[in-house]
Design a protein around this nucleic acid. Structure first.
Lengths: 221, 221
DNA sequence: GTCAAGATTCGTGTATACAAGAAGCATCGT
DNA sequence: ACGATGCTTCTTGTATACACGAATCTTGAC
């Protein structure tokens, strides 16, 4: 699909940052990466620029680009922003959603329930992602939907991990059902506030999880 | 400040796109731009990638990058998104704003009033920009503030032009005063809804202006 | 021994050279 | 005459070479 080497490298680097292989402040050495990816510096530089544009890294002129993992404060801010944007999507979707999309949401929730039964967090997260994406799209605003998806992608590793907390899967599932109910009945404000809480609570849960992990092992994600 | 040639070029190109010197669908020829900016293709390519990342241009592999001016539909979507995000900022700011910031907003509004008196749309827009930026910052969420500012920057040319409509300056001014009043009294929902309308109406006004200009002259902005 | 200044080295930023795919054009066949 | 196929040319994508600034190391002075 994408024959540009630089784009593949950008995705690979993003994954490496997400999985914590590159820690905060690490310099992304062009030459080193070039040899590792067996490619010249040119595509590496293009990939790095993409990372900088996404906010995953910061560039200091003549010094290089450095990984920029969000700290606790920024993570809270990102989750709050995501919560608000999802709330907006939900409020608009409650007015504009199509019957077909409601059916799709039901279908996603049926599949989600199976994942919950099997305690399959990865499977659940996949369905969860689709669930939210559908709502973005049903906001009837393509631009907003793209922005929401961009943010979702950025928060993906953090949204994912908090599902491992005991009871979180069931709670999330229940919230999804409530959201669909509100959308179906066209209760815009109710859909918005449930969605806002649904996402905000993810931030809090993630926060708790981080605090907990810190007491257990001082390693990264 | 920024010694990187590529960044300067990116800004210059952005300006050229904003001012309509490059129309929708125009190919941004690397070689041509390189000779025009008297520079090699390398910084040009980096600049183009930045444009693509901002959404101002689209890249087709092995074909080049093409200017992507938003059409009427996308503009409406962008204004709606901006309106919702500003509403969120306003709601949060109503709770979190500092006394000092309220003073600053008053000061900005005083300066704005002078621009209104002189019918100085450019001056008014500068103050207007600052007014909104202050509210973003007072949302107490740095991440949200940056996102809002990014969107504001993207919409700048369109927000600016609609101020030329007769009576718009006075109307905008009145709305700003109402917004500060709501923020000062901590009426979160009221601040949000005024801000939402304040921005949404800009989209509508811009739309009207475009429709009007289209009847007058078939040129670009 | 410590600090400062110069030299050296290393890495980014830019220019240029090379590779490869896409578009346009000409020629050949039907 | 029209269409298809191969060639040519042009442009992007990648590699390499060069320039310049930053950081470090060394050396000398106090």
């Amino acid at each position: 699909m994408d024959s540009r080497r630089a784009d593949q490298i950008a995705d690979a680097l993003e994954e490496l940052i997400f999985t914590g292989r590159f820690g905060d402040g690490d310099r992304l050495d062009e030459i080193r990466l070039a040899t590792e990816f067996d490619v010249s510096r040119t595509p590496i530089r293009e990939a790095l620029q993409r990372l900088v544009a996404s906010g995953l890294a910061a560039q200091i002129p003549r010094r290089g680009v450095f990984v920029r993992q969000p700290g606790p404060v920024e993570l809270v801010e990102m989750f709050e922003t995501m919560a608000e944007i999802e709330a907006v999507c939900g409020r608009l979707a409650a007015i504009r959603i199509s019957d077909g999309a409601l059916e799709e949401l039901d279908a996603v929730n049926r599949r989600s329930r199976l994942s919950v039964a099997e305690n399959d967090t990865d499977g659940y997260y996949r369905e969860n992602e689709q669930f939210h994406r559908l709502i973005y799209q049903q906001s009837g605003n393509g631009f907003l939907a793209r922005e929401a998806q961009r943010l979702q992608h950025r928060l993906k590793p953090y949204r994912r991990i908090q599902l491992r907390l005991r009871g979180r899967l069931q709670q999330s599932m229940a919230e999804h059902l409530a959201i669909v109910a509100a959308l179906r009945s066209g209760e815009a404000d109710r859909a918005a506030s449930i969605l806002r809480e649904h996402v905000a609570v993810q931030g809090e849960k993630f926060h708790h999880l981080m605090a907990y992990l810190k007491t257990q092992a001082p390693s990264g994600i």
